[in-house]
Computed example of a mutant assay.
Amino acid sequence: MNVKIIGGHGGVSPECRATSYLVDGNLLIDAGSVATGVSVSDQAKIDNILISHSHLDHISDLAFLADNCFGMNDKPFDIWTCKEVEDNIMNHLFNDAIWPDFTKLPSKESPTMKFHNIESGDSREIGEYKVHAIEVNHFAGSLGFIIEKNGKAIVFTQDTGPTDKIWTAAKKLNNVVAIFCEVSFPNRFEKLALDSRHHTAQTLKKELSKMPGDVPIYLGHLKPNYLDELSKEIEEVNESGRIHILSSDNKEFSF
C-alpha cells in the first residue's frame, strides 16, 4: 500500500494542510485538504472515501471535491462513515444553505456522492481493501480504521486521545506494518489535550505500550502554531526510534 499524506496537520496555514491521506490513489481517508492538495484529475480517480468524524478539518474539502468533479465520472464517490457523521455532514454542510446537496446532483438517480454507513465493530470489503472501523476517543462520531490489503494491515486512528479498542483489535493481527496516529498539543497543554480528546507527547508515551510492538508510528495532526515545540517533545519520547513526525505535507510511504 502506498500512503500519500496530502495534509497531515491539525490546522491550516500557508505551510500546513488539514488531514487527508490517500491510499493507492483511490482510497481517501478524510477530506480536510484533498481538493487543494491534489490535481482535479487525481481527485476524479478516487473511488471510496472514509470519513473518521465530522469536525471541519476532516470534511471541509468534501464540498470542493464534489464541486470539482461534478459530471466527470459515471459513478458517485462512495463515502463510508457512521450514521452520526453522515447526519452531521448532511445537516450542516450539504444542506443547500451552506453548500449544494451533491447526493442529489446532478440527479437523485446519478449523484456525485453516495453515503454508506459503517459503524464501530464493522468490517467491510471496500474496493481492494478490508476495512475495520473501530471507535476511538474523540468527538463527532469518531472512528479509527484498520485497512488490510495483500496480507498487510495499517492502523489509522486519525483524531484521538488515549484510547483502547483500536489497539486491542490491532494486537490481534500479526500483519500490522504501520500505525498513523496523532499528537496535537504540547505537554504544557495536557489538560486541554485531554479535554478535547487529543494527545500530547507525554500521553502518547503512555499509549505506546498498548500498540503493536516494533511497528513504525507516523504522527500527524500537529498544530501549526506549535510545530517546533511538538517536534522537540516527540523526539524526547522517541527512545526506540520508531516514531516519525509528519511535519510536512506531500509525503508518501510504501508498505
Rank of each mutant, 00 (worst) to 15 (best):
F70I: 06
I49G: 13
E119Y: 10
G71S: 06
N250V: 01
F115N: 07
V183Q: 03
L173M: 15
K130N: 15
L227D: 00
L208Y: 09
T81V: 05
K191M: 06
V23Y: 14
S240E: 14
Q202I: 13
V12A: 09
P14T: 07
T19R: 01
V38F: 00
E148S: 14
D249V: 10
T203L: 06
V176A: 06
A170R: 09
F189A: 03
I5C: 09
L27W: 10
L204S: 05
V237S: 02
M211T: 05
N68G: 03
S120C: 04
H221L: 12
S231E: 14
I118H: 07
N175P: 00
A44L: 02
N187Y: 08
D57C: 08
H199K: 00
N117T: 15
K104M: 15
A44W: 07
M211F: 03
D24Y: 09
T19H: 11
K172F: 05
G127Y: 09
E207Q: 15
V38M: 06
W99L: 15
L28C: 10
A31W: 00
F70M: 08
L28M: 12
E128G: 08
P224H: 04
L28R: 11
T19I: 10
E190Y: 00
K165R: 12
Q43M: 02
M113H: 01
I118M: 12
L246P: 07
Q43W: 00
G25D: 09
W99S: 14
I234S: 03
E86P: 05
E84M: 12
K251M: 12
G32N: 03
N250K: 07
S123W: 11
L204V: 05
N2C: 09
N117K: 13
N48M: 11
Q202F: 13
I166H: 13
G37Y: 08
S41M: 07
